[in-house]
Simulated assay, not measured.
Amino acid sequence: MRTTALLKIAALGMIALLAACGGPSKFKTYSGPPVTQIVVDKSERKMWLLSGSTAIKQYDIGLGNEPVGDKFIEGDGKTPEGNYFIDRRNPNSQYHLSIGVSYPDPRDVVEAAAFGRPPGGDIFIHGRGPEGNAKVGSNWDWTAGCITISDDEIEDVYAMVRDGTPIQINP
């Protein structure tokens, strides 16, 4: 009996030791005021998380590699402008963590069709991950149209923002 108890204690100790070696989790918890809207100002390179009319967080951001102007077609390197919402999340993103923006909407599809091209998609707010950290330096605008923040910051945003949260992206 005593041997069984010692084995159980040893097993629990090993589990605790292995968990400690894994480092901190990228998945945080959040218990503050709800984020009711995200506002992005492309010209200022800023993003705010709002609860009602109160800004609860502000971030410096990077944009697509062609940061001026609205996204019209796939591959133009632009970050879209307009009103969207957060529609998905990717815990296994190559850019650490990411939350999806509902681009394209029906208006975007019609605009792209006028150019005879698809509108593109896969627009996210994401961290940098290894690729972005290697690119960042003096150029924060390196994505194909996404909004980037640091890996530590996306951990907070991922915890704070729920699917369905509106996002307003201004020129």
Rank of each mutant, 00 (worst) to 15 (best):
R2I: 00
K8C: 04
A10H: 01
L12C: 01
L12N: 00
M14W: 09
G23C: 04
K26E: 07
K28M: 13
T29H: 08
S31T: 08
P34I: 12
P34K: 15
T36D: 09
I38S: 08
V40D: 12
D41W: 00
D41R: 03
K42M: 11
S43H: 12
R45N: 07
K46A: 13
W48P: 02
L50Q: 01
L50Y: 11
T54E: 10
I56K: 01
K57N: 00
Y59C: 08
N65D: 01
E66T: 12
V68D: 14
D70A: 07
I73W: 12
I73H: 12
K78P: 09
K78G: 13
T79D: 13
T79R: 08
R89L: 08
R89K: 08
S93D: 11
S98E: 02
I99C: 14
D105H: 02
V109G: 00
A113K: 15
F115N: 08
R117S: 07
P119M: 05
I125N: 09
H126G: 14
V136F: 09
V136G: 03
S138R: 06
S138F: 04
D152Q: 06
E153H: 00
I154R: 06
A159R: 09
V161L: 00
G164Y: 06
Q168N: 07
P171Q: 03
P171F: 03
